[in-house]
Amino acid sequence: MMWHSTLDTPTGPFTYVVSSAGAVRASGFTTDVPALLTLVHPELREETRPAADAGAIGAVVRSYLDGDLTALDAVPVEQRTGGPFTAHAWQVMREIKPGSPLTYAGYAELAGRPAAIRAAAAACARNAVALFVPCHRVVGTDGTLRGYRWGLGVKTWLLEHESGPMQ
Rank of each mutant, 00 (worst) to 15 (best):
A123V: 07
A125S: 15
G143K: 13
S63W: 00
L145K: 06
L110C: 03
K155D: 10
V33H: 07
T9E: 06
A115F: 07
E47N: 07
G164E: 10
G67C: 09
E78T: 07
L36C: 05
V33A: 05
C124P: 08
T6R: 03
A74E: 10
A21L: 09
F29K: 04
P98N: 09
H161T: 06
D142Q: 12
A121K: 11
E95M: 09
G147I: 03
L36G: 04
G153F: 03
A128T: 08
S19W: 02
G99Q: 14
E78N: 11
V61D: 07
Q167V: 10
D66R: 11
R126S: 13
L152D: 14
P34R: 02
A71T: 07
W3M: 08
G82I: 02
G106F: 03
Y148K: 13
T30Q: 06
D53V: 06
P165E: 14
E78V: 01
G12D: 03
G140S: 13
G153E: 14
A89Y: 02
R45E: 05
A122H: 05
T11K: 09
A130T: 11
E46A: 15
A52S: 13
W3C: 03
A111K: 02
T144S: 15
V18E: 12
G58E: 03
R45P: 03
V77Q: 02
D68W: 03
R113G: 00
R146V: 11
G112T: 03
R137P: 05
V133C: 15
L7R: 04
W150H: 15
V154I: 13
D8T: 11
L39P: 00
A122K: 10
V77T: 15
E162F: 08
K97C: 02
L37N: 04
S5Q: 10
E43P: 00
Y16I: 01
V154E: 08
T31E: 14
S20H: 08
I96C: 06
A122D: 11
P134H: 05
A56K: 10
D73I: 01
H88Y: 00
P34E: 02
D66Q: 10
T9A: 04
H161W: 11
G22F: 06
R118S: 09
D68M: 02
S20N: 04
R49L: 08
D8R: 09
T86E: 12
A52C: 02
M2T: 07
P34W: 00
G99F: 11
E162T: 12
F29L: 02
A56E: 14
L65F: 10
E162I: 10
T9S: 13
D8V: 02
A26C: 08
R94K: 15
E95V: 01
A56Y: 00
K97L: 14
L39I: 00
L145I: 09
A21C: 02
I57K: 01
